[in-house]
Design a protein around this nucleic acid. Structure first.
Length: 279
DNA sequence: CCAAACGTTCTG
DNA sequence: CAGAACGTTTGG
């Protein structure tokens, strides 16, 4: 599969090549090792929504579409900028704090991510009543496959194995741990406490913070610009990085381009269909 | 402490 | 209004 990823014949220059260390191009890295600065690491670890939502369509076992998911990710994307936007699936490491996760999604928590967190916190037994073998927490989470950039994230996290909602004929997580709102799914406070993560800001806090526009927003990590991993080095932002302190224009998150107020209104779950606890 | 990048303010 | 510059926050 390593090579089968070629997106139909796209000119996979820069972006893809970064997966394969042999980037002939300017692998310019500053002293912190950033190659043309591929986003903050935290983002690299986030997962795309499609990774979760792609499953339901495949009825029961999501194993079917590793390819479907792929084409899904490579959504139509106007290729205005110099480089093509390859669906560089962001690496998935569970090694994140709740806050990071929360904020990473504009304050909304992917319940999959929440689940992962809870799992890390040793709550898998509660999440998975039947104790279905979700072998995540163990190996891959920590040592991690450290980085499945470009590899099929499906295997890593969010895949049917990792995140088997809908697999065993039902949602394996305890609904009570989550709070569903039109704006997304949050982790219930009780869950936070149980997981020993209560110290993290409650969603309400976060939400309000975001609402008031106080808190610095973060990239969604899912939009094409976010998935871009290299700077164009041509736009004004790139050229004026010294003084501008701005991310490459082509990498500027679409969510962040919007006004903070409208950002929250946007539901992260396209249809909400993915969250039917009862079915 | 430093780099990266978001938000705000300034300027054309 | 768009773009540049600055101030500030955030994460390593």
């Amino acid at each position: 599969m390593s090579s089968g990823l070629s997106e139909g014949g796209r000119t996979e220059d820069l972006e893809q090549s970064s997966c394969k260390q042999e980037s002939p191009i300017t692998e310019r890295r500053n002293r912190s090792g950033i190659i043309s600065e591929p986003l903050s690491k935290s983002l690299k670890k986030s997962r795309t929504l499609s990774q979760y939502t792609a499953v339901p369509s495949a009825t029961t076992n999501g194993h079917t579409d590793s390819s479907a998911a792929k084409s899904h990710t490579a959504k139509s994307q106007p290729p205005p900028p110099p480089q093509p936007t390859v669906s560089a699936l962001t690496a998935a490491k569970l090694d994140r704090t709740l806050e990071q996760v929360l904020e990473g999604q504009n304050g909304l928590l992917h319940f999959a991510q929440a689940a992962a967190l809870l799992k890390r916190a040793g709550m898998e037994h509660m999440l998975l009543p039947g104790g279905m073998g979700v072998g995540v927490g163990g190996g891959d989470a920590g040592s991690g496959a450290s980085d499945l950039e470009g590899t099929s994230v499906t295997d890593a996290v969010g895949g049917p194995v990792d995140f088997p909602y809908g697999v065993g004929g039902g949602f394996p997580f305890n609904p009570g741990l989550f709070i569903m709102t039109p704006a997304g799914v949050f982790l219930a406070d009780s869950a936070l406490h149980m997981a020993g993560l209560a110290e993290y800001p409650a969603q309400s806090e976060l939400a309000s913070a975001i609402n008031s526009g106080k808190k610095k927003r973060k990239r969604c990590g899912m939009c094409p610009p976010c998935r871009r991993r290299i700077n164009c080095e041509q736009c004004s932002s790139c050229r004026n990085r010294k003084t501008g302190h701005q991310i490459c224009k082509f990498r500027k998150c679409e969510e962040l381009k919007k006004k903070p107020s409208t950002a929250l209104e946007k539901v992260m779950l396209p249809t909400g269909a993915a969250f039917r606890w009862f079915q």
